[in-house]
Amino acid sequence: MPEPLLEARGLVKTYGQVEALSGANFAVYPGEVVALVGDNGAGKSTLVKTLVGAVTPDGGQILLDGRPTSFGSPRDAQALGIETVYQDLALAADLDAAANLFLGREQLRGGLLGALGVLDKRAMRDRAVEAFAELGVQLGDIGAPVATLSGGQRQSVAIARSVAWASRVVFMDEPTAALGVVQRGRVLDLVRRVRDRGVSVVLISHNMPEVLSVADRVEVLRLGRRVARFEAAETSLEELVAAMTGAMDGAPPNEENEGDAA
């Protein structure tokens, strides 16, 4: 296998008495969709938060391109091309899609107007139209507040925003959780298109059929540790569920002989 793009080694994070991560490993390879699955409380969100700079781990290492790195804040991770699509979208509902795409990264006009903080709305709108078209996101009226869009369209805007700025990895936390069947399909197509553009996607999901249909690989987290990794094409629903629930604890997980702690 090639070198992982982003890798977690032995991450530990405790909140008071609770050990959310107890030596968790995780790897994202270039140009893949990798699903991170696990039961509630397995440590998925904590792991993701450490990998996007929202939480500082108590122990362990994060490696980017094989080099140890540390993120002080999500801004640090973003600067290295790592973006996150949050479960609750994190869009400003009263602003339009273009404004949301550029939120916090506004382009200003040149010269005096720019010095006064005047926005270059046209340039941002044009680039937004381009970005949405590239990902096949159809919005109708791009100037409408995102609150007036459908759930799927809003999710698409959120994903497009992350992809527009992510050069390396996008983390997506339950991107289809609140969506209907048709919109769910569109978002999953979008996930594949993001990967095809060369940006790796980490998909956090509870929906196992969905995971198997869109992911290339699956990594399973249980009780704060990685307990299994699968090639999606070579695994089954039963195997995933068994790994998540610990039903296959009898058979030793292949963690020890992975050799990535060496």
């Binding site: 994190a90 509902a93 939120l103 916090g104 506004e106 005047v118």
Partner: peptide, 21 residues
């Protein structure tokens, strides 16, 4: 201006505004 846009973004969803820095 950017000042006005941030004003609206914060009123719309302060947490989202914080997440984008």
């Amino acid at each position: 201006t950017r000042f006005g846009r941030y004003t609206r973004a914060i009123g719309s969803n302060a947490e989202a505004a914080g997440r984008v820095g």
